[in-house]
Design a protein around this nucleic acid. Structure first.
Length: 419
RNA sequence: GGAGAGGUGGCCGAGUGGUUGAAGGCGCAUGCUUGGAAAGCGUGUAAAGAGGAAACUCUUUCAUGGGUUCGAAUCCCAUUCUCUCCGCCA
């Protein structure tokens, strides 16, 4: 969420920045509401001062007047509240402003490739899709999931289940032991307020699974990504500068409704309602966001390098970035069956956007209170990594050779085949 | 599900109607001291909002929302969250 105080300083340039996202926002309304809001506040405060003085004086002859003042204060407060509410509604639905070097564009077609790595595998046969491979091995079962649950779920069985677990553990170990992240095993449910903090609510409620607990309690949601719960670790906190940066990593299931993606990626496990993801989150001083973004992205590419999967690194254009992000790199892995790159990781700096929503701050060296910067990135999406390994490491006989770095996590198994 | 207790500053913790934004402690910052550190002593240390170029000034805030009162952290009501005991249970 944007700090109104900052916006006000240079309203026009803010408007220009946010319009790069190619969305429609009524700025004159925002400006107008802000002005009204401040006028009411000033009226209210001068009356409050008057009232306070009377109360302090303990002069009985003025008590009647004080009572009258109370009634006018209530009046103005009422009006101010309405204006404030509307202001907040507009603000909480307004996305982050893009960082200055982010390319302006409409959708994923305007994203720009900044790096490419790894050899695209050559096959002397027609490479199969991950779901063909998995079903032939009898280790991916979509029909069974349909029976027990519904569409967009899958049973991963046998050696592929082990592979999935190995991928997750390998990624966690790498980030914990080599990259300095602290391992967390968090709750998978988040409160409404927590969801607001990272920007999933109020605008994207349709994408979230809501869970019914006891009647009359707070609303709870299944996390769509561990980013939500990890970032909110610092909600309502004022941290000591010395404790920064904080770096957390977790491997969790993620739950998404995927509303509005009907008919997209219906085959296979590219787009599921539930999937595992290893997520990195950093909490940093606000000036260090962009450095940390590079660092975090490198932590993610490191995994792809170690798995020897071919990928490219994209910088997302203004129109394709997530709501809370100021700058995002997507990593896309090569999928032979589709003959193209598909997203496997997304690393974003959210500047102070989420921190303002969460009220997450730190004291800097001048003892001033500042908002922290927050970053999140997948390192990597486990389900899609499984897909990428299946497809890139497939053999002519339908077996899958196992990437070297994963073998220690799989009893030194070298390949997965049907028997 | 039954019974009870409680939400106060970065943290712990006093405080039951009138300079209480809030004692005390911890932490943090800073000065003295030291070869350097520790200890010790002194000083300072909330956030949000509004006004102002700034120094600074004003307002609000003791879970949240209402109420009583000239005046509420303190009294009343509602909501919410946390904890303890019992029951049930992985």
């Amino acid at each position: 969420m944007h700090n109104l105080k900052e916006i006000r300083k240079n309203f026009d340039s803010f408007e220009k920045e946010i319009k790069k996202r190619l969305i429609d926002i009524d700025f004159s309304k925002l400006k107008d509401l802000d002005k009204k809001n401040r006028e009411f506040i000033q009226q209210k405060e001068s009356l409050e001062k008057e009232k306070k003085d009377i109360s302090k004086s303990k002069d009985k002859t003025l008590f009647i007047k004080s009572k009258q003042i109370t009634s006018s204060i209530n009046d103005i407060t009422e009006k101010q509240k309405l204006v404030k509410l509307e202001l907040e509604k507009i603000l909480s639905n307004m996305p982050n402003t893009p960082y200055k070097d982010v390319p302006v564009g409409k959708d994923e077609n305007d994203n720009i490739e900044v790096d490419k790595s790894g050899e695209i595998p050559k096959f002397d046969f027609k490479p199969k899709s991950h779901y063909e491979l998995g079903e032939n091995l009898k280790m991916l079962d979509f029909d069974l999931a349909t029976k027990t649950t519904g569409s967009r779920f899958v049973f991963v069985k046998n050696k592929l289940a082990l592979l999935e677990r190995a991928i997750s553990n390998f990624m966690l170990d790498t980030h914990i032991l080599k990259n300095g992240y602290e391992e967390i095993s968090p709750p998978l449910l988040a409160s409404e307020n927590t969801m607001f903090g990272t920007g999933q609510l109020p605008k994207f409620e349709n994408d979230q699974f809501e869970v019914k607990l006891d009647e009359g309690t707070d609303r709870k949601f299944l996390i769509p990504t561990a980013e939500v719960i990890l970032t909110n670790i610092v909600k309502d906190k004022i941290l000591n500068q010395k404790s920064l940066p904080l770096r957390f990593v977790a491997s969790t299931p993620c739950f998404r409704k995927e509303a509005g993606s009907y008919g997209k990626d219906t085959k296979g496990m590219i787009r599921q309602h539930q999937f595992y993801k290893v997520e990195m989150v950093s909490i940093v001083e606000q000036t260090k966001c962009l450095d940390e973004l590079e660092r975090m992205t490198n932590c993610a590419t490191q995994i792809l390098d170690l798995l020897e999967l071919p990928y490219r690194k994209m910088i997302l254009c203004t129109g394709d970035m997530g709501f809370s992000a100021e700058k995002t790199y997507d990593l896309e892995v090569w999928l032979p069956s589709e003959n193209k790159y598909r997203e496997i990781s997304s690393c974003s700096s959210c500047s102070t956007f989420q921190a303002v929503r969460m009220k997450a701050r730190y004291k800097d060296s001048n003892m001033e209170t500042k908002y922290v910067g927050t970053l999140n990135g997948s390192g990597l999406a486990v389900g899609r990594t499984l897909i990428a390994i299946l497809e890139n490491y497939q053999q002519k006989d339908g077996s899958i050779s196992i990437p070297k770095v994963l073998r220690p996590y799989m009893n030194n198994m070298e390949k997965i085949s049907i028997n």
